[in-house]
Design a protein around this nucleic acid. Structure first.
Lengths: 110, 110
DNA sequence: TCACAATGACCATTAAAGTGAACATAATAT
DNA sequence: ATATTATGTTCACTTTAATGGTCATTGTGA
């Protein structure tokens, strides 16, 4: 079953910031909550929660809203994202496909 | 009712990148999927989905995992986040509390 | 090589997120 | 000032995501 979660302070702060960035972006662009919600295809209630930094919101929705008000999480144009994506794929091929723990090695990074 | 969503290309790419960053971070640190899932307090299935860039994952969970493998979305230490948070609060007090559309103004940003 | 650990992938179950309605309160254009 | 619009907040309902299990496949240490 889905479980109720608790989140670290850093996560909560990051989400709070993201929510505020979205709100600032929205207000600066003169959009009402309802308008932004409509454009994003979500309810005003959900946008409300997102702007409050709710940890349970779906990440896809949040990213979508962020893009609509000009909040860029990474580099935020199609080309740059594709580039990074490709570079990561390369990097992944170089890394082991699966992480195997040797018998005695404790593997604590120190 | 909760609705099935569709996401823009940019959102899908950003999520794909984030998932790969997490996977790279995990593998570089020599953690198995199960180990990271345990530390994050989620199931391996969910981590699997996150690493695949699933848009439906909860943002709090994704941020939590990202932090655990050293992927920084914003500035990722407590102090810096607090600073940004405070600065945003300031900014918000300067902006209108609610966006009001004047009668005839169409308000399309051009 | 090859045993076995790690990952990929699917499924039924269950709790939680999204929704829209509703209402109160706050803010702003006139 | 005030009418009206935007926002804050709660709630029952419904759908979806997280879970844990399971099994096949892949990768790697010995």
């Amino acid at each position: 079953m889905k479980r109720k979660r608790s989140y670290s302070k850093i996560t909560r702060q990051a989400l709070s910031i993201l929510g505020k960035l979205i709100r600032v972006g929205r207000v600066e662009r003169g959009m009402t909550a309802q308008e932004l919600a409509d454009r994003a295809g979500i309810s005003r209630t959900t946008l409300y929660n997102i702007e409050k930094g709710a940890p349970g919101a779906e990440i896809g929705t949040v990213f979508e809203v962020a893009a609509l008000v000009g909040v860029r999480l990474f580099e935020f144009d199609d080309r740059t994202l594709a580039m990074h994506n490709a570079r990561l794929d390369e990097k992944l091929t170089l890394l082991p496909k699966s992480v195997r723990h040797s018998r005695q090695e404790v593997d604590d990074d120190f």
